Simulated scan of single mutants.
Amino acid sequence: MTVHLNKNRLVVLLAATLSANATMAASPVGNASAWDLAVHVNLIGLAQLDVGAQTSATLTNVLASASDSQTLPSAAFSSPLNLITLSTGTLASDAEYVGGNMSAIAARSSVEDLALGAGASVLSLNAGVVTSTSSLAGICPDPVRATSSLLNDFLFFSNFDTGNLVSGGGGGGDGGGLGGLPPGGGTLVDPVVSILGIPVPGLPLNPAPNTNVDLAALGIVGATLILNEQTTTGDGVHSLANATNAIHLTLNVAQLVTADVIIAHSEVSLACP
């Protein structure tokens, strides 16, 4: 599985029309990380399951085109006496950076045939496919020697093009990105969730960013369920970072039954040196 990014879009700086010294130069520094799952469940001290990422892809401080990918055909775990069980089909994590006049970076994680169960009816989480994708693109112009302080202050914005780093959509930034960037965010296929014996109906397949499922309305207390959990940081000019958890479930019943489950995580960042 490879994340394909479009490198053919160029950003034309208005500064280039006003100064012969305006040039496109340094590529932004890229970082990316993707991993499949992190599952921590404890049942009243009788059983505990702690499972970290089984596949992961990482790019650290890259400036030239690079990629990383890892795939596992299946995984299975259980606590003593099988009080807590976790199994999956194919797990995959990918990251890719493409440098150039327009640099782009993406990360994606996916979990197939997810099945998590705890106790007779404490927790059940199943899905056909869970996917998380994060992507960014942008440029870092060379410093521009403006002809006046007026231009420098109000046009060149300290030598960065306003909004020169953009996301691929799906929660954060302008939500649109540049042509060719994959849509960001989390998607689900056939999600089925039951908590404390109560089924959670109507889960969306393409949830909006930070969809907080109202569990209290179902009579489920001490639990949270967030789909397509999004975090965006940076000013979009000097730096920008996006992170996505396709599913994030927490449970705390009087400190006796606790769970923190993240399925399909991806994150990317670009920063101008």
Rank of each mutant, 00 (worst) to 15 (best):
residue 125 L to C: 06
residue 121 S to T: 13
residue 159 N to H: 14
residue 155 L to P: 07
residue 70 Q to A: 13
residue 136 L to A: 09
residue 148 S to R: 14
residue 72 L to I: 10
residue 169 G to I: 03
residue 95 A to H: 02
residue 150 L to H: 13
residue 72 L to R: 14
residue 74 S to F: 12
residue 107 A to V: 01
residue 109 S to W: 00
residue 163 G to D: 09
residue 165 L to N: 04
residue 158 S to C: 11
residue 122 V to M: 09
residue 138 G to Y: 02
residue 138 G to N: 08
residue 147 T to W: 11
residue 136 L to C: 12
residue 139 I to N: 09
residue 111 V to P: 00
residue 125 L to Q: 01
residue 117 G to Q: 07
residue 67 S to N: 10
residue 169 G to L: 07
residue 153 D to Y: 11
residue 79 S to R: 07
residue 124 S to L: 10
residue 73 P to N: 10
residue 152 N to M: 11
residue 68 D to Y: 05
residue 79 S to C: 06
residue 63 L to M: 15
residue 94 D to Q: 08
residue 154 F to V: 15
residue 151 L to S: 13
residue 84 I to C: 03
residue 105 I to S: 00
residue 145 R to I: 15
residue 75 A to L: 09
residue 94 D to F: 04
residue 99 G to E: 04
residue 151 L to T: 13
residue 112 E to D: 12
residue 160 F to P: 03
residue 101 N to V: 09
residue 105 I to L: 06
residue 153 D to L: 15
residue 123 L to Y: 03
residue 62 V to M: 11
residue 84 I to A: 04
residue 127 A to F: 06
residue 141 P to M: 11
residue 125 L to M: 10
residue 107 A to Q: 02
residue 148 S to E: 12
residue 108 R to L: 08
residue 97 Y to P: 01
residue 82 N to S: 11
residue 127 A to M: 05
residue 160 F to I: 12
residue 147 T to G: 15
residue 99 G to F: 04
residue 75 A to I: 03
residue 126 N to Y: 06
residue 72 L to P: 05
residue 161 D to N: 14
residue 155 L to M: 14
residue 143 P to M: 12
